[in-house]
Amino acid sequence: MLQSKYLTEYDMADFGFKSIGKNVRISSDARIYGQENISIGNNVRIDDFVILSAVNGSITIGNYVFIARSSHLSGALGIELKDFSSMAANTVIYSASDDYSGSYLTAQAVPQKYTNYRGGKVVLGRHVIIGSSTTIIGPCDIGEGCSVGAMTLVNKKLEPWGVYAGVPAKRLKDRNKKMLELELELLADDNSNHNGI
């Protein structure tokens, strides 16, 4: 039986990330391109078959962020995942995509001078959770505390503390903010545990 293996801090020391924090767990089956343009905070987990691509552009990952298996983040025009954000399996985030108008050629196999990209930076605010198989296309800013249901298409700004779903995403109701109290408890626990070392 095959089992997932997470890289150690020693393994990742030579990867050449722009920056990397403590307690970072990245599956050995993840694929990372343009690591010099990727910043990773503390307490981050990146699971099997995730692709982080920032050969052009950037990806910035905050603290306490989880990226589930088979998710794909393409940061050509920038992606930022703020603290406590997370995504379920098969989430796709494109900060840029080909120009589908017919005025340019498309596809990665075509030299760049014949193509054109559309899009913009994608930001997942603090405490954002993205449901399985959701597609996010920039530019878009998903406001703090948003919950996005499975198989949703997000291609615009989402206002904070909403529950969204659908194609395209529509706000269904407000989201509970109790998690902000739990965040304070977690951070207090972290601080008291580190002070004893």
Rank of each mutant, 00 (worst) to 15 (best):
S58I: 05
T152N: 02
Y104D: 02
D98S: 07
D11Q: 08
S86T: 11
D29I: 00
K156W: 01
Y33L: 12
S85F: 05
G166H: 13
G196Q: 12
R175P: 03
E9C: 02
E80H: 13
V122N: 06
A76T: 08
I46M: 06
I197R: 10
G145V: 05
G149I: 14
P160K: 08
K113R: 15
Y6V: 03
A96F: 08
Y10H: 14
Y33K: 11
N193Y: 10
T106E: 04
G21D: 09
V24D: 05
D47I: 00
M179Q: 11
R118C: 07
A96M: 02
V92H: 07
S39W: 06
F66L: 12
F66M: 10
T8A: 14
T8I: 13
E144S: 08
V163P: 00
V163F: 08
K157S: 09
K18W: 07
I67A: 00
P168S: 05
D174L: 14
V44D: 01
P168F: 13
R25V: 01
R45G: 03
S95L: 06
I79A: 04
Y10S: 14
G62R: 04
I38W: 08
I197D: 10
F49A: 05
A88S: 15
V154E: 10
A109E: 11
I26Q: 01
K5V: 15
L182A: 13
V148K: 05
G120V: 12
S85K: 06
V55Y: 10
D189E: 14
L81S: 03
K156N: 06
S192V: 15
R25P: 00
R31K: 14
G102L: 11
K82D: 10
N90S: 13
I136P: 04
L187W: 09
F66V: 13
L184H: 10
A76S: 09
N43S: 09
D14K: 15
D83F: 13
A76R: 04
